[in-house]
């Protein structure tokens, strides 16, 4: 699949924003994060800025953004529509929670419940995003039960690293945050390894033979494509990445998205002061870069059944 930059930008920034919101909405009400108004303002502003820029990026990916309100209508059948509804609903409790934390300096009671609600809606939004991809039977690399947990854990991880960084920059004593984010990163890494292993060792049921129904002996080969130049289908779905390039990018992802952040977070957890803050910031920057790379690969490695008609082998 063609790795469109707007979609990569949307899913990674919004994912990090929702991950951050998920953590803030729960950790503040249960008292792991203090109701410090400045810290709350910065952390929540970051979360909402990430979410909103992501959503805007996704709107500008559309050729008719002025009609985008219609995308909320078909929630009964479409995961994209459900995502739109969930993303919009998330703003309501999130704004009330902001009012409580930043305006009143209170994250308990009803204000806290609003945080938990925002956190829950952020979770639902991320799950809907993941289901858009996971539900597509045409793409082997997406239509498997690892896509959804991968999306969720990467969102928690990429939001969590920023929470860790903020906590240290504000000099807040909350080692639990580092511990959580270390756990998220480890789980996300394990899931990504499982995901790559899965797509490398399994096959899509469709082949050139099932696609054409041609039953003659021997392999079915394309002699003549329907046209000389690339059409919409080839531009949108014909993207292919060489195996050796993919493997190299996977290695860089292992290092930047998971290994470096883990080291940085452990430094942040066990050490104190500026070194700890430095570790957390390095973890945040590296993870953010790594997740963009991971998302690029998620698209670039995905192969669509229509390519069987253009002479490609099965996915």
């Amino acid at each position: 699949m063609h790795p469109a930059l707007s979609v990569i930008f949307f899913t990674t920034t919004a994912g990090a924003g929702y991950g951050l919101l998920m953590m803030l909405g729960v950790l503040a009400p249960i008292g792991i994060l203090p109701p410090d108004r400045v810290f709350g303002a910065v952390a929540l502003a970051l979360a909402l800025a990430l979410v909103s820029t992501g959503l805007f990026a996704s709107l500008f990916h559309l050729s008719h953004p002025e009609r985008s309100w219609r995308a909320m209508l078909q929630y009964r059948s479409s995961w994209l529509s459900r995502e739109g509804v969930a993303a919009s609903v998330t703003y309501l409790p999130a704004l009330v929670f902001i009012l409580g934390w930043v305006g009143v300096g209170n994250t308990s009671g009803t204000w806290g419940l609003m945080g938990v609600a925002a956190s829950f809606m952020a979770l639902v939004t991320v799950l809907c995003t993941a289901m858009i991809y996971q539900s597509l039977k045409t793409i082997h690399e997406w239509h498997n039960s690892l896509t959804l947990p991968n999306y969720l854990m990467l969102a928690l991880m990429s939001g969590g690293v920023w929470l860790s960084a903020l906590v240290h920059l504000f000099g807040i004593q909350a080692p639990t945050v580092d511990a959580y984010v270390i756990a998220y990163t480890a789980i996300a890494w394990g899931l990504k390894v499982a995901y790559w292993n899965h797509i490398d060792t399994t096959r899509h049921p469709s082949t050139r033979r099932t696609a054409t129904g041609i039953r003659a002996r021997g392999a079915v080969r394309l002699v003549d494509p329907p046209h000389m130049t690339d059409n919409f289908l080839l531009k949108e779905m014909g993207f292919r990445i060489a195996r050796k390039h993919a493997l190299k990018l996977r290695r860089i992802t292992h290092v930047t998205a998971f290994a470096v952040p883990l080291v940085g977070l452990v430094v942040a957890l066990v050490l104190q002061g500026p070194v700890a803050a430095g570790g957390a910031v390095v973890a945040a920057l590296s993870a953010s870069f790594g997740v963009v790379l991971e998302r690029w690969l998620f698209f670039a490695e995905a192969r669509h059944t229509v390519m069987l008609y253009y002479g490609e082998g099965p996915a």
Binding site: L62, R67, T138, I139
Partner: peptide, 20 residues
């Protein structure tokens, strides 16, 4: 008149029957 051009339907069609 209602289509927003998200192209998701083209991703969902196994046969490449949708044309943007």
């Amino acid at each position: 008149d209602w289509c927003i051009g998200c192209k998701l339907c083209a991703w969902a069609c196994p046969y490449g029957a949708r044309e943007f």
